[in-house]
């Protein structure tokens, strides 16, 4: 298993470097020059100013040299300097990463737990009213854009009912500590996490339901039933466990999509995570920061995929780690 992990990590590093190079060129393909953006915001743009900014950003150097310097930096764990924000990229991302991890992991947990639960119920009671109700709700949440769910949530739970805060990570100025602070953050987390989670929950619900119905028809389930095992044991130990494989695969794939969804959720709810940092960096063509966020997100996706592979092994002992 260790050699499997080592191999995957090595492959991951190679993939990451390829992503860095690809993103480096991709970003520069987009029209818009960071120096012009900043000069524009300053309300003045003479050539001296634009040239100064280009020199500051390192944009006056030939592209291959810029790439070489950037890759060299990444290899030595230096993600560069954001001249727009006047701070090292690693520091900027480090400040925001915990909030994004909290949001995405909570959303992920909510979506997976509720998705599997509802999917199991729908499959167990297939063809009944409960199944139809769950399927319809799943479809609604799948079909509704995240920003719309977010705005409706704000309208209902913040403006009308005044139950939950509409924006932010914590109550600004309250200076809460300890448990009170944790409760405050949790209150702020509910809406963004649910908004982000509901979309994915819908997918897992439908996937679990379909997968369970398929597995239920297989011979080994009949064998289990013939052995006289109780329905609950068959559902939990045989059907669900086998049905989870595609769900786990999907969850692994979703790790990247989740971060994409976080961009919208973090923007609507003013959640101070890297999704928003990425969005702002994109609009402002803050190349170093944008590349830095891409590197971190890619690394996160690779880690999630590695975890997915390991979870496969736990869910299905038939899968061997290739050496």
């Amino acid at each position: 298993m260790l050699s499997f992990i080592a191999q995957r990590v090595l492959k991951g590093v190679i993939v990451l470097l390829a992503i860095v190079v690809l993103n480096f060129f991709l970003i520069r393909l987009a029209p818009g020059d960071p120096a012009v953006v900043m000069a524009g915001e300053a309300g003045a743009s003479d050539q001296i100013f634009v040239n100064q900014l280009r020199e500051k950003f390192g944009l006056d150097k030939p592209l291959p040299e810029q790439l070489f310097l950037y890759v060299k930096g990444v290899v030595t764990l230096d993600l560069g300097f954001s001249f727009r924000q006047q701070a090292p990229v690693a520091k900027l991302i480090g400040e925001r990463l915990p909030a994004t991890l909290l949001l995405t992991l909570t959303a992920f947990a909510i979506s997976l737990a509720l998705g599997i639960l509802f999917g199991t119920f729908a499959a167990r009671f297939a063809g009944t009213f409960l199944d139809t109700a769950i399927t319809v709700f799943a479809l609604i949440f799948y079909a509704m854009p995240i920003f719309w769910v977010a705005l409706m949530g704000i309208l209902l739970f913040s403006v009308t009912m005044d139950w939950l805060p509409s924006f932010g990570y914590e109550t600004v100025g309250a200076n809460l500590t300890g448990f009170a602070h944790a409760v405050d953050v949790a209150k702020h987390l509910i809406m963004p996490a649910m908004t982000l989670g509901l979309f994915f929950m819908a997918t897992y619900t439908r996937m679990t339901r379909a997968s369970m119905l398929e597995v239920k028809r297989l011979d080994f389930v009949k064998t289990a039933r013939a052995k006289g095992l109780s329905d609950a044991v068959i559902q939990r130990r045989h059907v669900l466990r086998n049905a989870l494989l595609p769900v786990v695969t999907l969850a692994g794939v979703h790790s990247g999509t989740l971060i994409g969804g976080a961009v919208i959720t973090e923007t609507v709810f003013a959640w101070p995570g890297i999704g928003r940092l990425m969005y702002d960096a994109l609009l402002q063509r803050d190349y170093n920061l944008l590349l830095g966020v891409f590197v971190i997100c890619s690394a996160m996706v690779l880690i999630f995929n590695l975890i997915t592979d390991l979870v496969y092994r736990l869910v299905d002992p038939r899968i061997e780690f290739a050496s």
């Binding site: 705005l151 913040s158 805060p165 924006f167 003013a270």
Partner: peptide
């Protein structure tokens, strides 16, 4: 306190809800 709220609709709500 200068509050950073990126979405225009959310800024309106922040005012409406007294934040």
């Amino acid at each position: 306190y200068w509050q950073i709220i990126p979405d225009a609709a959310a800024r309106s709500v922040a005012y409406e809800t007294g934040k």
